[in-house]
Amino acid sequence: MTSTTSTTLRAALAIRDLDFAHPGGLRLKVPSLRLEARGEMLLAGPSGSGKSTLLSLVAGLLEPQGGRIEIAGEDILSRRGAARDRLRGERLGMIFQTFNLLAGFTAAENVMLAMLFAERPRATHRARSEALLRSLGIEEFDRPIEHLSVGQQQRVAVARALAVGPSLVLADEPTASLDPENAEKVVELIRGTCREEGAALLLTSHDPDLRRSFERVVDVREFAAGGGGEDAR
């Protein structure tokens, strides 16, 4: 990290010379990709074109063959083991199409889990999670997550992603199972919350309608190499 410039430090995400070959045949090459702090970017492309894979790489959950991925100025790939997990917990928030909330836990507990594993002071957990949930219109803090409606679960998932005050939120196909009207609402909810919390947003979607509402749109097929393109799986 000796060579990082001041502009790199400001970026929420900076990828350089990333090279990843999936054992399944998919190959991604990202020469350069930047997302400024508090910026927004839509990562477009059809299903199976590598959007989720790129997000997993950014989150440090997959190991590329080479390159550099900086999150708020810190190279996640140069970190190993618990240090990388810690960076992910502290700087990244993730939102999934299937929410990936934990059944058996209440709405507030699901949000607090993010703070637990990011090792935020325990005394702040409750107040922070309730404030976030309330701002998203959820008052049922102590209701088990499985007793909430799908729309409410979506909001809890958004709250969890932002609980630790991350630099970057990765939203993986959050609208895939929604009709166009609701899809737009959810995207606006995520964008609005990220803006309020000062987090940059990298959102993936195969929905072409969303392209219009984002200033920056990057098609993941640009990064496809080798076998890449639409027919890659």
Binding site: A59, A82, D85, F117
Partner: peptide
């Protein structure tokens, strides 16, 4: 495994 994957995303290390 799903639970483990989720808490790993949230920052829990393998050791934890």
């Amino acid at each position: 495994r799903r639970q483990v994957a989720i808490i790993r995303v949230l920052g829990a290390s393998r050791g934890k």
